[in-house]
């Protein structure tokens, strides 16, 4: 007890300052290259599609309530704001699906190249995937354009 009494006691234990970024670390890509922005877009599209799913189930469920309810719902959905929403859903779906293929290739270690001796300028595997990334994004753009054309001319 005496020894304890003689030990200097800090009145306030020094704390640590948490620099954890939280959600800001997800949504802010700052000065990182394209793949980091694709990461944000992929997650936002995924979130949007999940939020859209209950609405989609509700809309198709209206079919069970008879032809009148269905016609009424279709009339509402033909308004420009909902058509714009449909285009957004289509864009999210196309991007999420095609970027998902890129990620799937990456997760299986494909199209990333092999490890190399790190000689400056240092090799980065995702840079080796840029041609595939560009091709897939062009493909996504083509699918989206075709889909929008179909939506607007139906």
């Amino acid at each position: 007890m005496v020894a304890e009494a003689q030990t200097p006691v800090r009145t306030q234990v020094p704390s640590r300052l948490s620099m954890r970024l939280g959600l800001r670390g997800w949504v802010y890509a700052g000065r990182y290259p394209a793949e980091r922005y694709l990461y944000i877009l992929h997650r936002l599209c995924g979130l949007g599609l999940i939020l859209y799913l209950p609405l989609h189930v509700w809309v198709t469920g209206r079919r069970l309530q008879g032809p009148e309810a269905w016609q009424q719902t279709m009339a509402i959905l033909s308004r420009p704001v909902f058509v714009a929403g449909e285009i957004l859903v289509l864009a999210a779906f196309v991007f999420h699906a095609i970027n998902g293929f890129r990620l799937l290739f990456g997760h299986l270690g494909c199209a990333l190249g092999r490890p190399e001796y790190p000689v400056y300028p240092y090799p980065v595997a995702l840079h080796r995937q840029r041609r595939l990334t560009t091709a897939l994004m062009v493909l996504a753009g083509a699918f989206l354009a075709a889909g929008v054309w179909g939506l607007l001319t139906k």
Partner: peptide, 24 residues
């Protein structure tokens, strides 16, 4: 989820993102 920021930040060219995918 393959954002690739780790490999951009690495000052020695270790490319951790590649290592993680090859580990998968």
């Amino acid at each position: 989820h393959l954002a690739g920021a780790c490999s951009e930040a690495c000052p020695k060219g270790v490319d951790p993102a590649l290592g993680i995918q090859l580990l998968k």
